[in-house]
Write a protein that binds this DNA or RNA. Structure first.
Lengths: 248, 248
DNA sequence: AGCGGTCTTCCGCTGAGTGGAAAGCTGGTG
DNA sequence: CACCAGCTTTCCACTCAGCGGAAGACCGCT
């Protein structure tokens, strides 16, 4: 840019976006120095740009003075149209009403599940997912439900990587996982037991439109109540089917 | 900036933000030309910057090719911490569960109400508010509940302006409105009948922390069922009080 | 084929943006 | 209370990235 940019060809816009990109679910608040480090910008450059973003409320500061995403970006984000969420939300609500359990909706994004919506009540025990958060596919119910309906080549390349292992219950052996996915395809739903978080288990069903899983609907409960899961599968599948019908 | 910027002193960052600012609830999707007009930028400049934003998924395109807020900004927006929403959501959920009606939570932002959260089911009839949307204060239940607890000078200057009149039922005479606000303060809740939208009416209660209304909780239903509103006031006030206690 | 609108590309000028360095702030430690 | 380590803020002279008017491509409509 104008002036002595060390790394030529980097636009101001890309720097601004790099700063925004420094924030993610694992790093929702950062010091200026951390922003500079994570975005790969010189500290003084980060300082100036962050100042402008802050003035516009794109970024804000927490009580401790650390930087966080600001209200203006939240508001802007709400403008992003999301047909899936709009169509599906009433079903999540209904499923929650009839079961009283945490329910959530996720889509695949890259090699992860992205949580798109969630309905929970007061006694919601385990905070497993957050709207907008990402988790790996293989240890989550919704992830398995989605993965099971991906084409072979995709599943193969997913399993070929070294898979994370958040708990001792996580299944990471490619063979066993592939067999589980086959079972999901046959049964039409996935179950997990403490594979992502100790203390919680889940059931999930794919939202199938033209044979492709465009999303997955999941229900999570405390693993103490794991034996109640089978009872929840039917309503879960019903809601997933309802969403699928409304999406088509 | 570098080059022949007509309006000197305008940073690239401010231009990027102006582009983002071109999107709002009333204009969720825009053509490039509209973006340029609304942000006050030359078309070619808008074109270049929009290109970069699009590549980063900060903006996206709808099926018709028009620009909209992209998934990346949605995700980023979800990162914005919001204690009010986190604390209040379970109460909204519970209020919805016990009444089956649309409930929503709003705060004052400038001279408008900003909807922060909303819970609704399948039979939700009237789409009055959207999370992240803004509406004027005087024709909405939550707006009246919030306005009633603002300091005198604020209310005075609010009433001094020419007030919008979305329906024939909207109260805009300063005197009558002031009297209504006094009644809200006495009763602890506000009622509206088709003041914002024909066909729907609402009740709302302030969330009072140290005597200040930090938010308002509202419930909306079809005006055909207006006579059921009084029955809903008690649960509404209970939930608002619960939120207030949890916020303190 | 002409028209009103949109989108895309081009290119030479220039001041906005740059970032290293140095100075200011913390708060913790011996 | 001097010292230090890490974070934040300010400064400034150099320079190339960004600029935007203009020209042209590309619609859909009549």
């Amino acid at each position: 840019m104008s002036g002595g940019s060390r790394e030529a060809g980097r636009s101001v816009t890309s720097k601004v976006l790099a700063i925004l990109g420094a924030f993610d679910a694992a790093h929702p608040q950062l010091t200026l120095t951390e922003v500079a480090r994570r975005s790969g910008l010189p500290l003084s450059t980060a300082h100036r740009l962050v100042g402008e973003l802050e003035a516009w409320q794109a970024l804000g500061r927490g009580p401790d003075g650390r930087l966080r995403v600001g209200p203006r970006l939240w508001e802007l984000g709400q403008l992003a149209p999301n047909r899936l969420q709009e169509v599906a939300h009433p079903w999540l609500q209904e499923l929650f009403a009839s079961t009283g359990e945490n329910v959530h909706l996720a889509v695949r994004d890259g090699l992860e599940v992205l949580y798109v919506d969630k309905v929970y009540g007061r006694r919601a025990v385990p905070i497993v997912s957050r709207i907008g958060a990402r988790l790996p596919m293989h240890p989550t119910g919704v992830g398995k439900a989605l993965l099971a309906y991906e084409p072979d080549w995709f599943v193969k390349s997913y399993l070929a990587r070294k898979l994370e292992r958040p708990t001792a219950h996580t299944v990471t052996e490619p063979g066993r996982l592939a067999r589980e996915l086959a079972a999901v395809r046959v049964q039409g739903h996935a179950l997990t037991y403490e594979e992502m978080t100790l203390g919680s288990c889940s059931a999930a069903a794919p939202v199938l439109v033209d044979g492709r899983a465009v999303a997955a609907l999941g229900i999570v409960l405390s693993s103490r109540r794991a034996r109640e899961l089978p009872r929840l599968v039917e309503p879960l599948r019903g809601a997933a089917a309802g969403i699928a019908r409304a999406m088509a």
